[in-house]
């Protein structure tokens, strides 16, 4: 069964809901697979699964993470292979069972088995700081903290950083989870006018390294509407390029940081419409 791999476990987390964890998990998971890595994305949001929907696999879910933990299904039976990328797999969350079904031992066993078969295990954390969120980060080697340039999101990210530094296996061994800040829903023109926290503000407050800035874009909504990660659905769009760059940085490549700039043309300015 073992293919001699030793996956890197990445948790995509934020504390606050609605900041783009699931969207980012799908986009980065697909980007990693596109770059030749063998990837499994796991939805830890038991009771409110959505990663299947964002990946367009909602009608193909038979077994889920809880089924595997309970021994109802074997891990390979529950893994859904993406139809577009042969290297990308999804382990969906359970939709109906109660949250206590997600046990620490069960999650440890699933992660240990997946580690031998994949290059990357990307854990999509639920919002909050309860069991689902702490178990999603438990085995992480690296973390992407998804943050909107907005006060409540920044505060919750700070809290999550505290948990990553205390409640993870690595932290308990006295090591450190590699933490990366991903700023999403960034409006360059609002930041320029002082209406929105700037990149520098957020970096100074949270003081963890920046891995990418995803501009607010209708392409992100369009991609989730059709059930395809934005990195596959519109690979040349602003957000997709930002996700690809972030993914390459995650793999250790040195990519200069592009801060999305004011891209409104004279026509749009005159008629008050913002560019995509």
């Amino acid at each position: 069964m073992s293919e001699g791999k030793s996956a890197r476990v990445l948790v995509v987390t934020s504390g606050k809901g609605g900041v783009g964890k699931t969207t980012s998990t799908a986009a980065i998971g697909a980007a990693l697979a596109h770059l030749g890595e063998k990837v499994v994305v796991i939805d830890f949001d038991v009771g409110l699964r959505n990663l299947d929907l964002v990946l367009g696999a909602e009608r193909r879910v038979v077994f889920d993470l809880i089924n595997v933990i309970n021994g109802v299904a074997k891990l390979p039976q529950a893994l859904i292979k993406d139809k577009r990328l042969e290297n990308l797999f999804l382990l969906p969350a359970s939709q109906t069972r109660d949250k206590d079904a997600l046990t620490e031992d069960g999650v440890a066993k699933v992660i240990a088995e997946l580690r031998t078969k994949f290059d990357w295990i990307v854990c999509d954390s639920p919002a909050g700081i309860e069991r689902g969120a702490t178990l999603a980060m438990r085995h992480a080697d690296a973390a992407i903290i998804v943050t909107n340039p907005e006060v409540s999101s920044v505060r919750d990210s700070d809290r999550i950083i505290g948990l990553l530094d205390s409640k993870t296996e690595k932290a308990e061994r006295g090591e450190c989870v590699d933490k990366h800040l991903l700023i999403t829903r960034y409006h360059p023109w609002r930041a320029a006018r002082g209406e929105m926290l700037s990149i520098d503000d957020v970096l100074e407050i949270l003081s963890i390294p920046l891995i990418g800035i995803i501009p607010e874009s209708e392409e992100v909504l369009r991609a989730s509407n059709v059930g395809s990660p934005v990195t596959l659905n519109a690979p040349l769009s602003g957000p997709a390029r930002a996700y690809f760059d972030a993914t390459k940085r995650l793999k250790g490549e040195q990519i200069p940081m592009q801060i999305p700039s004011e891209s409104r043309g004279i026509f749009n300015k005159l008629f008050g419409r913002k560019a995509a």
């Binding site: 505060r155 002082g194 209406e195 929105m196 926290l197 700037s198 503000d201």
Partner: peptide, 14 residues
């Protein structure tokens, strides 16, 4: 703009 206020409030709170 209100961003400087947001920044100051966050710094104090955090």
């Amino acid at each position: 703009g209100s961003a400087p206020v947001a920044r100051e409030r966050l710094q104090i709170l955090l």
